[in-house]
């Protein structure tokens, strides 16, 4: 049938030959599913564990360690879901999220999902304390030692002038995820500053980094624990001391932010499921140093979350044991 003369025939013949060559040359390798490498896979009672991962590295450290332990020690199948906080909490109601393992305050969400909709329950603290406040880069703290007292800030307002601050000092505010009282603070402490909204964590970090590298002045809203501190020890500016209830009226706030005891929240369904993963989440507790270390592995040493978790867990077996049933 193939005459070999017609171009069509030649093409087909050529293609056939190429295909044959491919088959022959390809048949050397290992076959898919040849060696049984069953990683993970539920060992019965744990089943699937839906873990929300909020978009910051500290959280990622918590999640990585919990996920690693849940998989290796409890045999759970862990599904990580990358979500913003608000969306993650919504997931409690729809049954798509079992746990949030680092929560910064969020009284509004607690009220909505724990008290009103009753789809979520608290699962205790993580052991980390969160600090929110105003920070300056290390070189400024060294050069202007008294800048760390908010009373002296007006003296330095000129330093912080930028194209955005219309003649006043610029107070760089930040991440829209965090509740801020800075507008009220500036007004009530009678500071000659203007709050400028950087708009993202990345913008804040970049501002502090550039300031330290170029020795330019900047003052801004920030928080600990944060992986940046392993690279850059920002210095906190002392605002008037926090007392209970001093921040109850948003417009009248004139005191520092309270310390946050970071905590864990799980869905109601998960809490009653009898899953060993729930016990793990509930018992999970570590220090700021622990988290900073894992966060450093991820952010600076560019390890994958799994590798970072493995490294830490291998070195801290005893602590991990205490979380297990």
């Amino acid at each position: 049938m193939v005459t070999g003369r017609r171009p069509a025939g030649r093409f087909a013949a050529l293609a056939g030959a190429a295909a044959l060559a491919l088959v022959v040359s390809g048949c050397g390798g290992a076959k898919v599913g040849g060696s049984s490498d069953s990683t993970g896979g539920g060992k019965g009672k744990c089943g699937t564990f839906n873990l929300a991962v909020n978009p910051w590295v500290g959280y990622e450290a918590n999640a990585a360690v919990i996920a690693y332990v849940a998989e290796k020690d409890l045999g759970c199948k862990v599904t990580k879901k990358d979500l913003k906080e608000e969306v993650a909490w919504q997931g409690f109601g729809t049954g798509e999220v079992d746990a949030v393992v680092e929560n910064w305050g969020h009284d509004d969400l607690k009220k909505k999902y724990i008290d009103q909709q009753k789809t979520a329950v608290s699962a205790g603290e993580t052991g980390n304390t969160g600090v929110i406040g105003w920070y300056v880069p290390p070189w400024m703290a060294k050069k202007y030692p008294d800048i760390t007292d908010s009373k002296n800030l007006n003296k330095y307002a000129d330093l912080f002038k930028t194209s955005e601050s219309s003649g006043k000092g610029q107070l760089l505010d930040g991440d829209p995820s965090f509740v801020t009282n800075d507008g009220a603070l500036v007004k009530n402490l009678k500071l000659d500053y203007k709050v400028v909204y950087a708009g993202s964590e990345a913008a804040l970090i970049q501002a502090f980094r550039q300031a330290e590298a170029k020795k330019t002045p900047v003052i801004g809203y920030f928080y600990e624990p944060q992986w940046l501190f392993s690279e850059l020890k920002l210095t906190k500016v002392d605002l008037p001391k926090y007392t209970d209830g001093c921040d109850s009226v948003p417009d009248k706030v004139a005191c520092d932010y309270p310390g946050y005891l970071l905590d864990k929240v799980v869905s109601k369904k998960f809490s009653t499921s009898g899953s060993p993963a729930f016990d793990l989440v509930k018992k999970f507790e570590w220090t700021n140093e622990d988290q900073n270390l894992v966060a450093k592995y991820i952010a600076q040493d560019k390890m994958s979350p799994e590798a970072a978790a493995k490294k830490w867990v291998d070195a801290n077996r005893t602590k991990v044991k205490s979380w297990l049933p």
């Binding site: 171009p7 087909a12 050529l14 293609a15």
Partner: peptide, 15 residues
């Protein structure tokens, strides 16, 4: 010619 080429490439793709 194109059709034949496509048939041939189809075979290669399938492989």
């Amino acid at each position: 010619r194109r059709r034949a080429g496509l048939v041939g490439a189809g075979v290669v793709t399938a492989v």
